[in-house]
Design a protein around this nucleic acid. Structure first.
Lengths: 194, 194
DNA sequence: TATTTTTGATTGAGCCATCAATCAACAAAA
DNA sequence: TTTTGTTGATTGATGGCTCAATCAAAAATA
């Protein structure tokens, strides 16, 4: 019973399916057929909407960026003090909808892809710059510029590292603990320079 | 002009070639033919020595682990104080031979592979545990147990995150700066608890 | 309202290229 | 001549992508 206006629904479903497929097949074993099957459609339809596997992947990455960006926007809108803004960024990174095995795997794949795909690299830099500038903006109000930049880099690195580790569940570090670790790092640096 | 005793030479060359191929083709575009060509041999020879693509990949991962382990061993052998041991671990992670785009890409691929490959996961856990226990061992002499564990996790995460960022050269963070960031984090935590 | 036309949604079948893996054969050292 | 090193040719399977055809809803027309 095909209805009209299916395009956005299918695009969404295929992107979600791609994220899942990346998670449990890996980039090497990723096929359009598998993705399409997970989305409940034929592989031909996936090609119809995205043109090619590469395009679907790029769209998936863009989706990840958008979701995370939206998460930040929501939280930053309610943060009034510099401290609250820092917390918003830290907690945004570990929000339940982001801090999931499938999503983390997809981000990992994204990082890999960026090494040999110019568009992926471009998108990734958007994320990196946004994260760092958000952190610097918050920290700038509490620390000397040089220290603020260092701390932003350290915190950003710690966040990414905690993501990486969460991907494997090798050492089970739940979101709350991750948040606490980054927060402690930042707040102790701020206190030291008070 | 085939000589005798080629096996270790070929194995080495193929593994290095695999690391390079992963870096600039990605896991998706990785082929035995490409790897073999980079190593200057036929793809048949790669199969002859490794049996299969999977085996070659596992051997490559094992090689990465061995190299890093050796780096640690060398540095830890000359470290007498707890402080020196911490430094040895931090600096070992950013040693020139480790902190290279190709090697970092391979580690990234390794992380991804671990999500759906049991052997890769097993190997990766070896690395994670070794890093964390080395850090905890050094920090235990200077900090209360709970704080030592947290700091070890924070430092380990920061190290991995700095690696991740170095992979892209998006935000150019040279080794010395990375080392300084992690060291500052650890030393300021130690001072705070002195 | 009934009928025709149009159009978006969808797929099965299949082409074509690629690639992992195998094999038979050959060259050089021992 | 046995062993080790090596390759080109081959194959079987797989997967990206195309295409012609179908189907059902919407729009247009009578």
């Amino acid at each position: 019973m095909p209805k009209i206006g299916m395009e956005p629904v299918r695009r969404r479903a295929l992107i979600t399916a791609a994220i899942e497929a990346i998670h449990d097949r890996g980039m090497a074993g990723l096929t359009m057929g598998d993705i399409a099957k997970r989305a409940g459609v034929s592989s031909a339809l996936a090609h119809h909407y995205f043109g090619s596997k590469d395009h679907l992947l790029i769209a998936t990455m863009r989706h990840l960026l958008d979701e995370l960006g939206e998460e930040f926007r929501r939280r930053l809108a309610e943060a009034n003090t510099p401290e609250a803004r820092i917390d918003a960024i830290i907690e945004g990174n570990f929000a339940p909808c982001q801090f999931q095995p499938t999503v983390i795997s997809a981000w990992l794949a994204f990082y890999m892809q960026a090494q040999h795909d110019a568009e992926a690299m471009r998108l990734l830099k958007v994320y990196l710059r946004r994260l760092e500038s958000n952190l610097v903006a918050g920290l700038g109000a509490m620390l000397p510029p040089a220290v603020a930049r260092d701390t932003a880099r350290g915190a950003a690195a710690m966040i990414d590292g905690l993501w990486l580790r969460a991907a494997l569940k090798a050492t089970d570090v739940p979101a709350e603990e991750a948040i606490r670790l980054v927060r402690d790092y930042v707040s102790s640096t701020v206190k030291r320079h008070a």
